[in-house]
Amino acid sequence: MPLTLAEVEHIAQLARLELTAAEKELYRQQLSDILEYARRLQALDTAGIPPTASVLPPRSVLRPDETAPSLPPADLLRNAPRIEDGQFRVPKVME
């Protein structure tokens, strides 16, 4: 079942992704194709099979709680598009 344009617009909105009209239509078609292939999974009986989100055994790995130097703030701010007073500068969030 092909995706609708409205569905693509809804996900793009959730993903904070501005798309042109041409992109929306292209991705609508490509997503519909890919989902068609992903639906092959329906052919398998997976009842009673546990999911594998990671091949690692579930465990907590902690390193010794020792202080160590971190990267200097100036190095971390160097890549920011806009900074002010040692902080990241963004457009206003609310009126």
Partner: peptide, 15 residues
């Protein structure tokens, strides 16, 4: 359920 969780179960079968 239809896609992601099912794919994770198929991953178990592959393993």
């Amino acid at each position: 359920e239809q896609y992601y969780n099912r794919a994770l179960r198929v991953r178990t079968l592959i393993r």
